[in-house]
Computed example of a mutant assay.
Amino acid sequence: MQITQKIPPFLERNLGNVLIIAFLAILYIPILLYWYDGWLNKSINIEHEYFSHALIGFPYATYLIFGKNRHQWQKLPNKNHPLGGFLLALGLAFYITGSAELVAISFPIIITGVMLWLKGMPGLRLNGFPLLLILLATPNSIPYLLTPYTLPLQKFIAAMAGFLLQQLRVNSQVDGIYLYVNNIPVEVAPYCAGLKMLFTSLYVSLLLLHWTGKISDRGRVITLLSGALIISTLANIIRNTLLAVFHGNGQHKAFEILHDGWGGDIYSTGMLIVIIGLNWSLDRFEESSMIISDEKDDNFNE
């Protein structure tokens, strides 16, 4: 007697997608686990630490691709785009080099190639935003390449922190990128110039804009991103001011906690809460403006 096993209907309908997901999982789950462990335990190199916003960015992008956009994706006709094959080949070539930089870059390249190969440009347009989130959260050397150009920002932060210290009547002075408290120097180094906080705040702002459906509202995009820029800059000035006070007064434990410990994480979280509050305030302002506008129209009609 012959026993035949039938493939479950769901698996049969989605066999191609399941195989692709399995292929990507084999290639990238070990890398993703390495990144997540490094971000959570601060054991990854300092340049890749700049991309810790992927802790929320990658899950949100996954939700958009496999959750929110899944039904629209299934309705799209299967249409191969030759650029997809090229990107797949390029991504695999980067992957097999074994270079940490190229392997990381291959991640968004291969995902983009898969979407183009399966659904063509319509598929790419559908998942363009989650792909952008993946690209912006994939570790690369851009922070390292930017460090030679952060000197003006370092001087600005040192000057503003020095101004705050003078207002607080703290014995301090500023010399370029150095803050002196009680004649003990603290350097506003390139990696202390606030780029990580800036990257994170802008990234979270993009998430908020998409989550609230405002990503196509140019005015809201400009307002929230500008606000995030100002908030992150002010937060970093205050942070460097506190670090200088702690170091200059011999409070080394407090300095370490805020500089590279759990205090820095709480401080960054507080900054993000302020940005979320700004987005909420903009929503309330728009609602109030619409109510006032409707009332004026009603009064005019009467």
Rank of each mutant, 00 (worst) to 15 (best):
E12W: 13
G120F: 04
V188R: 07
E49I: 05
L224C: 10
F156V: 09
K119N: 03
Y149K: 04
R70P: 04
E286M: 08
I157E: 15
R125F: 07
W117F: 03
P82Q: 02
S293D: 10
L208W: 07
P30G: 01
R284Q: 11
P30T: 00
G248L: 01
L164H: 00
G213F: 06
N69S: 13
I237W: 05
S99P: 04
L92P: 00
M271G: 09
P130D: 01
N279R: 01
L88M: 07
A193E: 08
V221N: 10
W35T: 04
H81F: 14
L202F: 07
I65H: 02
L258K: 13
A54N: 14
T138K: 11
N240D: 03
G213H: 05
Y28V: 09
R169K: 10
G85C: 00
L207T: 06
G57T: 15
N182A: 05
L40H: 03
G38I: 14
G91S: 02
R220K: 13
I46L: 00
E49C: 00
I56K: 00
I238D: 01
H210V: 12
L124F: 15
L32H: 01
L136N: 09
Y63F: 11
W39A: 03
A93K: 01
L225H: 03
T112D: 01
F300N: 10
E286C: 09
P185Y: 06
R239N: 04
I31L: 04
N299H: 15
L40M: 03
D260E: 11
P8E: 12
H259L: 02
Q167K: 14
L124Q: 07
S99I: 09
N14G: 06
F285K: 07
N301M: 15
S293A: 12
Y50Q: 12
L224K: 09
G38S: 11
N14V: 06
L27M: 12
A159Q: 15
Q2G: 00
A193F: 03
G57V: 06
F163Q: 13
G120W: 14
L225Q: 09
A89C: 12
D37Y: 08
W262H: 04
Y180C: 04
M121V: 11
L32E: 01
Q251H: 14
I266M: 08
S232P: 05
G98A: 14
L278I: 07
L209Y: 09
M197I: 05
I237T: 02
L164G: 08
F51G: 00
H247W: 07
R284W: 13
W35M: 02
I276T: 08
A54E: 15
N171I: 11
T269L: 08
R239W: 12
Y180M: 06
N45T: 04
T147S: 11
V274C: 08
G120M: 03
T212K: 13
K6H: 10
A161H: 12
